[in-house]
Write a protein that binds this DNA or RNA. Structure first.
Lengths: 379, 379
DNA sequence: GTCTAAATTGAATCTTCGT
DNA sequence: GACGAAGATTCAATTTAGA
């Protein structure tokens, strides 16, 4: 059994501001060890997000070991194919189970793979109780062609994003993604070039790692599903793309990697990575990040007078503000949301955008009043 | 046990030209029955290709409404409900095993699904000994948004294409695909709009089937992986998209569908479908060494006259065809691709889909002209 | 009739907080 | 955990209605 060797790129002191349980973690360092063994050394429910790029070589070779640590021999016979899938499944189940143990209740996991392994991984993810949130397609702008012309060009890889369960409250920075995508919802298909050029790590002109992932991919993953200061674990760290991007984005990272050569390359690379400064890290916040303002507060503070008439954009409905911040429209009385839903006959309604007041230059949504209030009162 | 009820759209006589073993099959007709039961009635090793669109096991929760309050019409049909993953897996294994029995040794199978089910389906496909050739991503041009802003927009579905085994000699019409894709290898990600408009089958203004697939998707699937005269089976026939496209492309089809309502719609639809004529069909075989179709070829052969004006979809740009097949738009002159890129200010542009000509019923992409040319001229 | 604005709709695992 | 109220949330392609 190997000893867990920790290879840090920064001292533990830097983690002093982190809360106690997190302080136990080997933050911002690499555990040079077998991935399952290393995960076993981490405390339960301590990780915010896991990004995993597991091996998918079904020839097994020396890449895989069974959960008990024994070696899986390579298989070449057709009759043994089922057995090889079973071995891969056992390996997958073992590391995913450990991942599940160390993830926080509201944590999420990403796994990337190709058609060789992703279906088995996905089924295991579901079997272990994870709740799939999306499958994301990485469309390669410049895939390797199918030289023999025997199939379609294999131009994508698939990522699975899953939470701990159906009810878990995971992090999804919706507003950030929408901003990143030119004010359109970010879709489940992402296009990036494969990792090459200056970004591709090379040693003596030879690529250090065969499957180095582009930083742009990890950038979007981390930006979408983590918050600054979160702890991100990559159990198949390789040359540390996850660590380099995590550092850049102000997230803590932990890498697990068995190969000393990959570890060395990763450390050198991450040390050279420059973190974005605080102002650059600021992203579009979800409205729910802003303090809640009750409609009644606006009335109490004189931003909207009781008796003021409110309208929908087409003036089909007219309502009147009560002294307590309630709204009345015909027989319907209640919150701005409830009355809006009632008069429209819809199950719900955002009263802030539905109701408008009469301004000098036409109708304006009462949400504008709320914004004015927020600007005037927030420090 | 239900009786297999055969619902044909043509007499058996029409199959007389088919070889003996195939003549035993209920060609070009629907078996109104449970899919596993119906497949059991078919002879072993008799089918060239199977396209399957099984239930996705969506596991939807409560109702969903759009931001405007309108109700989203979800898939609530009983046929999509399963008690557990285990139950879904058992169902999947059962129908896939039958599919494997009736496929020829060199046959292939396509299965379409979403993240809800595709990983389980893919793992079972592999477990049964199928050899995955590609996973294909159908990128939806117009997916339904994520109304609540909780995840990435689910903008794609996944198809698995597999042969009977690693050594099987499956059909892949490489040349045809490459020609269809402007002389670039066809990739594993395909973009199509979802099925709507005139193509979407409706009864009394209501969609007949909740998950009708676009014909363009099946067109490419059949064109890529079958030959004229091949027998294509769809065990989850629904409203018969597979049958309609198979008929159009001169392939035999067999549908299995339990719901009488779907069967009736499928028959009516397929009877109305017009097969391409024989000369057009022969082009689908696309011999190796088929000439590249340059835009200029279309001009030379009178498919597009010099001087014809081309437009983008929004008529922001107007260009004129030169006698040599070049395009001119203001100062920009060159190939359809280059001029398209220049006027848009983009690094590249697929001129075939960017530029449109004025047809009687509106603008049509010049790619349509290329299709016409290909159908008419390829040996 | 023609053009433009408005309405409709699609395989969707679709909220969060306080009591 | 159940329940109720507050609050946040949509893109592209058609079709229909209206000017």
């Amino acid at each position: 059994m190997g000893v867990l060797e920790k290879v840090g790129t920064r001292g533990r002191k830097a983690a002093s501001a982190v809360q106690e349980s997190v302080a136990e973690l080997p933050l911002d360092s690499i555990l040079m060890s077998d991935c399952i063994e290393a995960m076993r050394s981490l405390p339960a429910k301590s990780i915010d997000m896991i990004f995993a790029d597991p091996p998918y070589n079904l020839q097994l070779g020396g890449d895989l070991s069974r959960p008990d640590g024994s070696h899986v021999d390579a298989v070449t016979d057709d009759w043994d194919k089922f057995d090889s899938f079973a071995a891969y499944d056992a390996f997958t189940k073992a590391w995913l189970a450990e991942a599940r143990r160390i993830l926080k209740d509201n944590g999420t996991i990403w796994v990337i793979g190709s058609y060789h392994n992703i279906f088995r991984v996905g089924a295991t993810v579901q079997d272990l109780g994870f709740w799939i949130l999306n499958d994301i397609v990485w469309r390669k702008a410049n895939p390797m062609p199918n030289f023999k012309g025997t199939r379609f060009t294999n131009a994508h890889e698939t990522m699975i994003w899953a939470s701990m369960g159906e009810k878990s409250r995971y992090t999804f920075n919706y507003r950030t993604m929408k901003t990143l995508n030119d004010e359109l919802q970010m879709r489940s298909d992402w296009e990036f070039p494969i990792c090459g050029g200056q970004e591709r790590l090379k040693r003596d002109g030879v690529k250090v790692h065969p499957t180095q992932k582009p930083e742009a991919l990890l950038y979007r993953v981390l930006l979408a599903s983590t918050k600054p200061g979160d702890v991100v674990l990559d159990p198949f760290f390789g040359t540390g793309t996850t660590g380099a991007v995590a550092k850049r984005l102000g997230r803590h990272w932990i890498g697990i990697e068995r190969e000393p050569g990959y570890c060395a390359a990763a450390i050198e690379r991450i040390e050279a990575a420059l973190p974005l400064d605080e102002s650059a890290l600021r992203t579009m916040q979800a409205p729910k990040g802003a303090p809640r303002v009750a409609f009644g507060t606006l009335v109490e503070n004189g931003y909207l007078a009781p008796g003021t008439r409110l309208f929908d954009t087409k003036r089909r409905f007219q309502a009147e503000i009560g002294a307590d911040g309630s709204l009345r429209c015909g027989d319907a009385t209640g919150s701005i949301h409830k009355v809006g839903a009632t008069v429209q006959g819809t199950p719900s309604c955002n009263g802030w955008t539905f109701w408008h007041y009469e301004a000098e230059d036409g109708l304006k949504p009462i949400d504008a009043v709320r914004q004015t209030y927020l600007l005037a009162t927030q420090p």
